[in-house]
Each structure stands twice: as structure tokens, then as C-alpha cells.
């Protein structure tokens, strides 16, 4: 290769290269960066004090607390279920395996609105179980359980998706070795399975959490939009925006954007770790 001079057509002229890079960077700047910059610029447009004020209102507090609560329930739940689903799909062949694999992916290919709709069809006032729940004084839709159900449904794929390719590539050999050496199931899980998947697991949990806190469409359908009670942060952004509270809406949006930025940063770090592990293996 090196002895033959490279044909000139293979090394594109510098100008062409520079133009392409400039075009791509401009496109990314306008389409991807500008929306982010606008959020912070609008939030700070009236100065820093209005930002603090907007976050100190009772409704804002309630929205932040509710968002954290929903994520605190949803993320651990989906971590456990996602690990179980990934383990089943990566380790075993069983009838209905393809069906399970499709179901795991399903929430990603369905409109978030439909992900919320299905729960209303079940538990809403006119839902299958609505009258029964009503008679027993249980509220699911327009209350916390509905928000948790909808968020769980939407964020279910993240953990399983991060784990399946890795678990399949690693194979069961190490787990089987531990078992033959007399380890019990719990020991195998804590000392073999978990350390092997920890980075991918953290990756899945990270994305799951980001979506759980930022989900809009699915929770919009089940929330009922009761201020101070069933508004998560993204729904609160909508409420403020519709009230023409521009600065307030962008302040809460800026908080959510910070979450997105932290998520992206951590994701880059984790990806480097995962590539590293793969390189060493």
C-alpha cells in the first residue's frame, strides 16, 4: 500500500474537506445546538433572580418532587425487570422467546400517547376496571399510580436493550463455572453476573432515568393536569407555557436540559468504559 503513491482522487482536496466540515458543523449548530442555547438564554432573559423565584414557587417544588418520586419508583423497577428480561432472552431458548423480544422493544416503536392511552383504557373512568376501582376508592388515572405505570411502560426497554447484546456475547460459561464450583444462585449473581455487566447496566439505568424524568406524551395522557399534584416537570413546563409564563416555562425547561446534558456527558464516559472493557476482553 505505502509503496504505491495514493491516487489523488482518494485524498480529497483540502478545500472540499473544509467546506464539508463547515457545512456539517453549521447544520448541527442550527439544528441541534441552537435549541439548547435558546432554553438557557430565555430562562435567564430576566436575570438570575427570576430563575430562583420561578423554582421556589410551591407548584415548581411539587413538580420537581413528583418527578423525582416517579423516577425513584420506575427506575429500580425497570432495572430489576429489565435484567430479568435480558437474562431470559440472552440465556434461554423457549417458546414465545421472539414474542418476548418484540414486547421488550415495543414501547420504543409506539407513540408515547398510545403508551399512556392503554392505561386509560384499562383504569380510566370509562375503562375496563374503572368502575370497580371507583367503587373501591382507588385512583390510578389522574394520580401517582397512573404516572408510574405510564412511565414504566415507556422506559422499560432501556435496561434490557443495554444488556442483551453483552450477555449474549459473554455467554453462560463463567456462571456455569461458578455453579460447578459450588456457588449458589445468589453468589453467582453478585460475584459473576453483576460485575460482568455493571457498565452496560449503568448505561441502561442512566438512559432509563433520563427518559423517566423527561417523559411527556405518555404522562400527559394519564396525568389529568392537576397543579401541585399530578404535574411532573415536563408537564409543568407545558402548563407554564400555556399560561404565557415564558420565563417560568424556560426555567423549568433549563433544569431538564441540564439533566439531559449530564446524561449525555455520563453516557460518553460510560461508552468509553464499555469500549475499554471490550478491548481488554
Amino acid at each position: 500500500m505505502t509503496s504505491v503513491p495514493m491516487p489523488s482522487a482518494l485524498t480529497p482536496p483540502r478545500l472540499q474537506r473544509a467546506v464539508l466540515i463547515l457545512l456539517a458543523v453549521t447544520l448541527m449548530g442550527v439544528l441541534l445546538l441552537l435549541p439548547l442555547v435558546v432554553v438557557f438564554s430565555e430562562a435567564l432573559s430576566q436575570g438570575f433572580e427570576t430563575v430562583v423565584e420561578a423554582l421556589e414557587t410551591e407548584d415548581a417544588r411539587a413538580a420537581i418532587e413528583l418527578t423525582l418520586l416517579v423516577a425513584a419508583i420506575t427506575v429500580p423497577l425497570n432495572t430489576v425487570c429489565g435484567m430479568a428480561a435480558a437474562w431470559c432472552l440472552a440465556r434461554f431458548q423457549f417458546p414465545g422467546r421472539t414474542l418476548l423480544a418484540t414486547l421488550v422493544e415495543l414501547p420504543f416503536s409506539v407513540s408515547p400517547v398510545i403508551s399512556g392511552l392503554v392505561w386509560v383504557l384499562l383504569f380510566g373512568a370509562n375503562g375496563w376496571f374503572g368502575p370497580w376501582l371507583d367503587a373501591h376508592g382507588v385512583r390510578i388515572i389522574f394520580a401517582l399510580p397512573g404516572l408510574v405505570l405510564a412511565t414504566t411502560f415507556v422506559t422499560f426497554p432501556f435496561v434490557a436493550r443495554a444488556l442483551i447484546p453483552l450477555m449474549r456475547a459473554q455467554g453462560p460459561a463463567e456462571e456455569e463455572a461458578a455453579l460447578t464450583l459450588g456457588a449458589n444462585a445468589a453468589q453467582v449473581f453478585w460475584h459473576v453476573t453483576l460485575p460482568n455487566i455493571r457498565w452496560a447496566l449503568m448505561y441502561g439505568v442512566l438512559l432509563c432515568n433520563a427518559r423517566a424524568m423527561g417523559e411527556f406524551g405518555a404522562v400527559a395522557v394519564v396525568s389529568g393536569h392537576i397543579r401541585g399534584q399530578t404535574l411532573t416537570m415536563p408537564l409543568y413546563v407545558e402548563a407554564l407555557f400555556n399560561d404565557y409564563d415564558w420565563v417560568g416555562a424556560f426555567t423549568v425547561a433549563a433544569l431538564l436540559s441540564l439533566l439531559a446534558l449530564v446524561t449525555l456527558g455520563l453516557r460518553v464516559l460510560l461508552e468509553r468504559h464499555m469500549d475499554h472493557g471490550r478491548g481488554a476482553a
Binding site: 445546538l33 435549541p35 439548547l36 432554553v39 406524551g217 416537570m233 415536563p234 424556560f250 439531559a260 446534558l261
Partner: peptide
Amino acid sequence: PGRRLADALIDMPLALPTAVAGISLTAL
């Protein structure tokens, strides 16, 4: 220069909550 940053930026639409994207595109 800035290639790493640009790479992370590509995933911005997936990381940014949709309501945030909605109001910021409207503002733009």
C-alpha cells in the same frame, strides 16, 4: 477540533425531553 463534542451533540434530540424541545423550537 470539536469532533467529540459534535458526536455527543448528535444524540441531543434523544436526550432532551420532548416538551423542552417543543418550547425551544417554538421560541426559535
